[in-house]
Simulated scan of single mutants.
Amino acid sequence: MPERRKLRKGDRVSWRSHGSSAHGTVQEEITERTYAGKRTVAASKEDPQYRVRTDEGRDAVHKPEALFDE
């Protein structure tokens, strides 16, 4: 199994959103079940997710495999 990519606060990323690309900056790694990005995030240390601030100023939460380096 390939090593999971580790993102850091401040990393610039993009992702697919509703048929187009969105862009933003990683704010934090989420490693426990919590509420973020207007939804409950079922993250864990083994399956982390990342809170990203979009260029428009909104929060979004994504799994690392959905995020691409800019």
Rank of each mutant, 00 (worst) to 15 (best):
E28A: 13
R51L: 14
E28R: 15
T54V: 03
I30H: 11
V41K: 00
R53T: 05
E29I: 08
Y35C: 03
E56P: 04
D47L: 00
T25G: 01
R33S: 14
V41L: 00
R53F: 01
Q49F: 03
R53I: 02
T54E: 07
R39N: 04
V52A: 13
E28Y: 07
E46D: 13
T40H: 06
A42S: 10
Q49H: 06
D47S: 01
T31Y: 02
R58W: 12
G24N: 05
V41Y: 00
D55S: 15
A22E: 12
R53Y: 04
A43R: 08
T40N: 04
K45R: 08
I30D: 05
D55R: 14
T40Q: 10
R58I: 11
G37I: 11
G24C: 05
Y50G: 11
A42M: 03
S44E: 06
A42G: 08
E32W: 05
S44C: 01
V41H: 00
I30Y: 02
G57F: 07
A42Q: 04
E46A: 13
Q49S: 09
T34K: 01
A22D: 04
G37D: 14
A43L: 07
S44P: 08
T54K: 03
T31F: 02
R33H: 12
A42C: 03
R39A: 12
T31H: 05
I30C: 08
A42R: 00
R58K: 13
R39S: 12
A22R: 08
K38Q: 15
Q49E: 11
E46K: 09
Y50D: 09
T54C: 05
A22H: 03
V41W: 00
E32T: 05
T40G: 03
T40Y: 09
E56S: 10
Y50Q: 09
D59P: 04
I30E: 10
P48D: 04
E29M: 11
V52E: 13
A43T: 11
R58L: 13
D59L: 04
T25L: 04
T34C: 05
V26P: 09
K38R: 15
Q27L: 12
G37C: 13
A42Y: 04
E32V: 03
R33P: 14
H23P: 03
K45M: 06
